[in-house]
Design a protein around this nucleic acid. Structure first.
Lengths: 247, 247
DNA sequence: CGAACTTTTGACAAGCATCAACACGTGTGG
DNA sequence: CCACACGTGTTGATGCTTGTCAAAAGTTCG
């Protein structure tokens, strides 16, 4: 992949929510960047490190996690191919969490100074980048409610709904079935449950014909029912928010 | 309070983390804004509303909450006097959560168009505002871990630690004791517990001499111990992050 | 074919929720 | 000034959801 192709995929992502001019596009495509292939489990950002670059996930899946003092792991978000993983590192100093690959995939690193220069010289690009981080914030708020106030089954169904919608929006699945790269242990870390209980809840969803598939592939058998079971309302994903300059 | 005084308090907040030039300061102080006094429980932003302005909390406390389909309330953050409550509404369309007053207090509304104009014409201001929302994101991530992976007692202690540090940083308490405007029911909503269990955990913290005080005032009797009990590390608050233009 | 990981199952324990009642403080109106 | 209502905090008994531990079965991959 050439640098231009890499940056084009990041630009596509931004353009799903923001309008960009030709000048903006040209500037994005001119960013310096460096590509790497990473294996599952590989660490992209380590908690406590000072970040020098922002990372774009070109293919594969990644997750963001934090670890409690006694070793409990909490996944705080899941990143899909095409997403900018590390935008907060453009301004924040020391990483307050880690990002690791879930699957094999390609990542691209853009120096934080270049991102900053771009963001503060071209308002539309700055706005687009800021907007992405605001949507991330909205997703975090929903996750707080998910782990704080919903029971195990609902939590899991909600997570599956979110992934379904986001994969579809990213063009990575037809909305009916997809390959889920998460193990049940990782689903547990994302929902604040134990792997054993996740297993039982998945069986419960399966037995009620809401989902199908086995191992790590999910088939949505009853989308309406799954949304109901997961108390899911996609508004928090703000996928419809398309904004221009003069909004 | 004159508009200038109102905006000065917002500016102070921004300047705790970002450097601003005289031009930046003048532009902030020239923003249009309108002040209101609000009673406890009063709603500042309602979930589902289209936001037209950003809100700055001048005095008092407020909280952000979301509600599940079956009526469970989850508080996703607590806002202290001096904080900009609604910065995401500068770009995001429909509010994905509500903000309500915890105590009586004054709030100021700034039209979102004015905030946008400012942010995209003066890079240092745009950076300062973006940075605030990124720190909010970091706090959300910590809360996900708090409700997802820590037990009830630790969760509560962690919340008390966070409030202690933030109040101190805002100059609203000496770090040893403060008036906590949250009822036990609201503490429960913030930690994903029930009021009854919060009561028991508070008693546990009290009986171990970590905190004192009664009703709604908290005295920190053993700060080191409380941090330990709450698995608390203030790094995620990014209070040390002071950034200039050329960083 | 075997090793390592993941999923599944069962028995049991524990943490937290639920329900209900009571105590306490505060403000209000008679 | 007392009586009362109301919100909040406190306590106890009980039960359910979820966690823990341990082992077996299935899967993937060299």
């Amino acid at each position: 992949m050439t640098n231009r192709q890499i940056l084009a995929s990041m630009m596509r992502k931004l353009e799903t929510r923001s309008q960009l001019s030709d000048t903006d596009r040209a500037a994005i495509l001119a960013l310096p960047c460096r590509e790497e292939t990473r294996e599952p489990g590989s660490t992209i950002v380590r908690e406590g490190d000072r970040a020098e670059s922002c990372c774009v996930l070109l293919s594969g899946f990644a997750y963001r996690s934090k670890v409690t003092g006694d070793g409990g792991r909490q996944i705080v978000s899941i990143q899909l191919a095409g997403e900018i993983v590390d935008l907060h590192n453009a301004l924040l100093g020391v990483a307050d969490h880690s990002v690791q690959m879930l699957t094999r995939g390609n990542v691209a690193f853009i120096p934080r100074s270049a991102i900053q220069e771009l963001a503060f010289s071209l308002p539309a690009v700055g706005r687009a980048l800021w907007l992405e981080t605001l949507v991330d914030g909205s997703v975090y708020r929903e996750w707080i409610m998910n782990v704080g106030r919903r029971d195990a089954r609902t939590r899991l169904a909600h997570l599956l709904c979110e992934l379904t919608v986001r994969l579809k929006a990213a063009g990575l699945g037809d909305g009916n079935g997809y390959h889920l790269p998460l193990t049940q242990e990782q689903l547990a870390d994302a929902t604040g449950l134990t792997p054993v209980h996740v297993n039982r809840m998945i069986q419960s969803l399966r037995s009620q014909q809401l989902i199908g598939g086995n191992q790590r592939s999910i088939v949505i058998e009853d989308w309406e029912g799954l949304q109901l079971a997961g108390d899911f309302n996609p508004a928090y994903l703000h996928s419809e928010t398309i904004q221009g300059h003069s909004d």
